[in-house]
Design a protein around this nucleic acid. Structure first.
Lengths: 104, 104
DNA sequence: GAATCGCATAAGTCTGTGCTTATGTGTTTC
DNA sequence: GAAACACATAAGCACAGACTTATGCGATTC
């Protein structure tokens, strides 16, 4: 189940930080490490987990590997969340406004 | 961070199953165990984790404890997801339709 | 073509966590 | 009020996973 890799990937705070950093723009693994006190292998392993969860994707450029957010993973979370629409609170208005935003 | 408890709670497949079951309607812990091959203490511990993540909430009734989906947890996931709206794919239409659904 | 660089992989260690059995606590039943 | 019930908590165990150091591998630099 794809669902599983996604939630498992996001369960780790370090991986959430990495994902958040990538959301600000594509970056290679070394750049991601800046100000993060994490070893190079650790970063590589975290990126592998995020990649397998389809939360990020890679683009090889020479000896660099640029990573960026993969919309597929986010879409799968949205799908999962949608299953429980019956329980969404009224103040889901934020999400509603958000989608209106995308229309413009 | 609330975010952490939520993703950690959902990282476990058994807990996701429990949550899914509760989404079908409120139920006490014993009813939840039906057809799940899980010990009573294990269920109790899983429910505690889900409760701390605000994904479910309890309602004590006599010697029974009924559990139900807590919209707060779902709202927090929606909020987290909303942070990455810039990366949502075009085919997020499902979500869009969903919200239209709620309007009726 | 040797050295360096960016990254991945291997192997081992240590902590977190999901399970178990055992027991405790409050509620209902008889 | 004793027994049965629904559930929580405690303690211990076994495995998953996040880290480390060491090494490998392709691309670039000189």
């Amino acid at each position: 189940m794809m669902e599983h890799e996604i939630f498992r990937a996001l369960a780790d705070p370090t991986r959430r930080s990495i994902f958040e950093k990538l959301a600000a723009g594509r970056m290679n693994a070394s750049a991601l490490r800046q100000g993060m006190e994490i070893s190079q292998p650790a970063m590589s392993q975290h990126l592998a987990v995020l990649r397998e969860a389809r939360l990020v994707r890679e683009q090889k450029e020479g000896r660099f590997v640029n990573y960026e957010v993969d919309p597929d993973g986010l879409a799968l979370i949205a799908q999962w969340l949608a299953k429980y629409r019956a329980y969404w609170p009224a103040r889901i208005d934020a999400l509603r406004l958000l989608l209106k935003d995308m229309d413009q």
